[in-house]
Structure formats: structure tokens, C-alpha cells
Design a protein around this nucleic acid. Structure first.
Lengths: 254, 254
DNA sequence: TTCCGTCTTTGACCCAGATCAAATGGAACT
DNA sequence: AGTTCCATTTGATCTGGGTCAAAGACGGAA
């Protein structure tokens, strides 16, 4: 049965990067297959964690990056008073812990929103491997850079958008992320609470709730608890046409 | 006189990374001196650009990262309607263009706020060098990670803070950055307009102006146009004690 | 020196969304 | 079925800061 080999087998299908449906979203993207093999030799696959369990917390020594394999994770900080500030939500294929490379310790909590499996990437080994595999180094830099861009977009959203635009943007982001993972882009379940969404978007949870109601009244959505159906994707997109930065500018003035 | 050597000489002092007062803030930090030398062989030092000139714009092909050597740069996007959204301000030793690694093109404008000299780091050469110098690879990852952390802080600030807290935080950030560069942390000139500050902090320029007035009335600052003197640093710090995330949490609940 | 354009300050008003409060509805128990 | 505990919805009210408007104040050009 080969149970002792480095990669676990289930029905003859290796649980390995090479066979992972998320590979194109993840670290192995663009690597030669023999390099992917070297990468998966350092990946640790622990048993799934349950809803509410922490992957790490602020102050924890940084040893590994984590990639969500199944499930969903939220990252957040906490004030001394005890209230949470949600930093982000992480779906399958998305990397956690990039902010900790900086000073070798985590700066926030990472908590499972549902039963979640993660791939653990011991960072020292990863870094060492990256010196030997230029493509891996490049991909790591790209992932970090993507995170920087994504956060810059978030900052722009928070700076320049109404509550309506923020929620529309959030839903469209989820929709697109589900689509790329092969799920329905118009029919999905929210892993997080209204409170979490509000905290993430800088809104009161009541505002989030009211907006869901309004979007439903306008025929944009059908909402039932955590279940969201997008009925009018175009309308949703239209809601944030206004404040999108202009990336198509070709002419230049001093 | 050795004018033809790779590094320009002025009064016998090389304009080179090894002698640069910003080295500890910049890419060479932590590298062996022979590695610093290899790094500075790929650095291009062009002539300074004038206030208002662009370093790059959205859509420009990404070739190089830039480090501000003297002066100040703002990065921003522009809506089709033509109004700017400031993303950040960059002081000497700070890196520009990290968000462009992702898709090989710049996503925003970078404009000099005053006469500015930058060091240009051709990215392909840098990446190639990083495979040969593990310390350089590590430092690059650290810099990217620091950017991620800094932006996460910004997001938290925008999500959870009042106008007063935002401006206090901005001034303290400038103060600290000047201090680390050997300038006075309590007496400096703002390179950017009230408009720019407002855009950066998600506030109307009028609000920024009113806050400067109020801080002055409260004896926290003395403000004269672009000139800022911090009279009561502690008071300023106190203004944002409340909403700071708790990084000292040691206990853990499920 | 005056003129002009831009940046900044100050005042008056208003609204999106926060806050407070209460009712409603599931889900997981016994 | 009933009870408890949350999460969510809905309503009523309030306010921080945006918007509009106008008046300085500086700096550069001629």
C-alpha cells in the first residue's frame, strides 16, 4: 500500500503538489516537474484543523508558511479590549504568513472558519530550495508582490468607497476566487459571519446586514443566511465602476 | 582620478552602497562586503529628477526597482475622472515598485515631490544575483514582507481609526522615519500637500487642515505651512494608544 | 511691485453610516 | 417540543467628517 512513502496515497491518487488541483494558484506554478517534486519533499501535511482552531497567533515564532488546501481561514488582530480586526480571508490555494518573514514572528491570529486542511511549508527549507531553483525564487517574489498589490487595492477601496461599493467589491472578489477554483461564481456559502465581513470592510455589522437586504430587494442577490446567490453579476460590477483606478492611461503629463 | 571606474567619485568618497548612509535601511543590509560590491555593480545611478517628474506610470513595463536616495516620492493611482488616490510616500532608503513584480508592469504613478535621486535596480539582474547570494534573496523577501506588514497596518488604521488618530499616526510614522535617517524626529518639512495627506489617509483636505489647527491649539504641534514641529510627542502617541492591535497576547483560546 | 494661480484655512450645512436598542430566527442542546 | 445561545435583522437616533463656499496667504512670473 506504500503507506510509508513521503506522500500519502488515497485510492492510488497521490496527495501531492503535482496532482493538486490548486497547483496553478500555488507555489508550484511555472516550475518544472522535477522541481515540483523537490518542493513537495519539504511540504508537511498535518491533519485538518477544526473550526475555531488557531494555526498561529501574534508573537508565535515564524517557522512556516501555510497554504490553505481545503476550508477557509481568517486572519485578524485583537485589541487589548478584546475586539477583533479582521485582516483577511484565505481560500484554498492562498498563502498565509507572508507578513511574518519580516521579523521572524507572526503578527496576527490565523483561525479556521471551518474544518480546514493546510500544507505547511517550512520557511528555511523553502528559502534554501529557492536558491537552487530560480523559478521557485521568482514565484515566491511574485506571490509576495501579489500580496502587496492586493493590499494596495484594499487600501484604495477603504479610502475611496462607500459601504455599498465595499460590499459589492467583496462579493465580486469571492465570486472570482471561487470561479478560479472551479466552484460556482454565483452560488456559494460564506464561511464568515456578518461581523467578520464588517470588520474586514471597515463597516458595522448592521450596515453589512442592511446592504444584503438591499441588494436582495434590488434583485442583485438572493441571500439566505450564509448562502449567497448572485442573480445579477453585471449590476454588481456596475456598482464599483466609478471608483476604479485608471490603469489604461497611456498619455503622460509632467 | 579614476573617473572611468564603475562608481562615481566625489572628493574621493565613492557614491556606492558600501559608503551609503542608508545601507542599513536598504537592500545591502546584512550582506558581506564582497556581496555588497557585486550588488552595487548592477545599480544604476541616473541623474536626479525634478519635482513633478514621473519615475514610472501605470502600464509601464517593469524593468527595475528604485530606491529613493535623496528627496521624496509619492505613488498614486488616478481615476478616469482625473482625481488622484495617493498610495504612499517614499523617503530615502525606501523601495519603489515592489507591486510590479507580480505581473511585470507598474500599477501606479511614482512622482517626485521634490528634486529626487534614486538608485535603479534592474530586476532581472537583481533576481539573478539573489540566486547566487542567499543573504540577498533573504533580504529581498524581508523587504517584500515588510511592505505587506506595513500595508496591513495601514488597512487596520483606515478600518478602525478616527481622523485624529490617522493624522497622529501619519505624523508619528514620519517622525520615526526621519529619526532613523538621522534627521530630527520633531522638526521637519512635509514634502506633500494637505490634499496628498488627505488622499493618503482617506480624509478630505479640509479635515487635515482643521486637525493641524487643532493639534496646534492643543500644544501638540507648531505648524507653519509645510514646516512641522512636534512639541508634545507623548501626547501625539497617546492619541493612538486605544486602537493599537494587541501583539503581546500570550494566552490562547480555541 | 503687482498679478495670478495654487494651496490652505475657516465657516456653514448635511448625510452616510455608526451606535443604541429590541425583536426575530436558527441551531444545538436536553 | 422546549430552552438556551448566538447570529442576524430591523428600527430610531446621532455624529464625525464630507461637501460646498468663500476668504486669505504665499510664491513665481513679468
Amino acid at each position: 500500500m506504500g503507506e510509508k512513502s513521503k506522500v500519502v496515497s488515497i485510492d492510488g491518487i497521490k496527495v501531492a503538489c503535482a496532482n493538486c488541483s490548486l497547483a496553478t494558484l500555488c507555489l508550484p506554478y511555472g516550475l518544472e516537474s522535477q522541481d515540483v517534486e523537490r518542493l513537495e519533499n519539504i511540504v508537511k501535511r498535518n491533519k485538518p484543523i477544526q473550526r475555531g482552531q488557531l494555526l498561529y497567533g501574534p508573537g508565535d515564532h515564524f517557522r512556516s508558511l501555510y497554504v490553505v488546501k481545503t476550508g477557509a481561514v481568517k486572519t485578524f488582530t485583537q485589541t487589548p479590549a478584546g475586539d477583533e480586526h479582521v485582516i483577511g480571508f484565505h481560500l484554498p490555494g492562498e498563502i498565509l504568513g507572508l507578513d511574518a518573514i519580516q521579523d521572524n514572528q507572526h503578527g496576527c491570529f490565523a483561525k479556521a472558519l471551518e474544518t480546514t486542511a493546510v500544507c505547511e511549508l517550512p520557511f528555511e527549507k523553502l528559502e534554501h530550495l529557492a536558491t537552487a531553483i530560480p523559478g521557485l525564487q521568482h514565484q515566491m517574489l511574485r506571490l509576495l508582490s501579489r500580496e502587496v498589490s492586493a493590499e494596495a487595492n484594499m487600501i484604495s477601496l477603504l479610502n475611496n468607497s462607500t459601504a455599498e461599493e465595499r460590499l459589492a467589491s467583496f462579493l465580486l472578489s469571492l465570486s472570482e476566487r471561487f470561479r478560479r477554483r472551479g466552484f460556482s461564481p454565483t452560488d456559494f456559502f460564506l464561511a464568515m459571519s456578518r461581523q467578520d465581513i464588517g470588520s474586514y470592510l471597515g463597516l458595522a455589522l448592521e450596515t453589512v446586514s442592511r446592504l444584503f437586504t438591499r441588494f436582495q430587494e434590488q434583485g442583485i442577490l438572493e441571500v439566505d443566511r450564509k448562502h449567497v446567490k448572485i442573480k445579477d453579476l453585471e449590476h454588481l460590477k456596475q456598482l464599483l465602476r466609478h471608483h476604479t483606478p485608471c490603469h489604461a492611461s497611456l498619455n503622460r503629463s509632467s
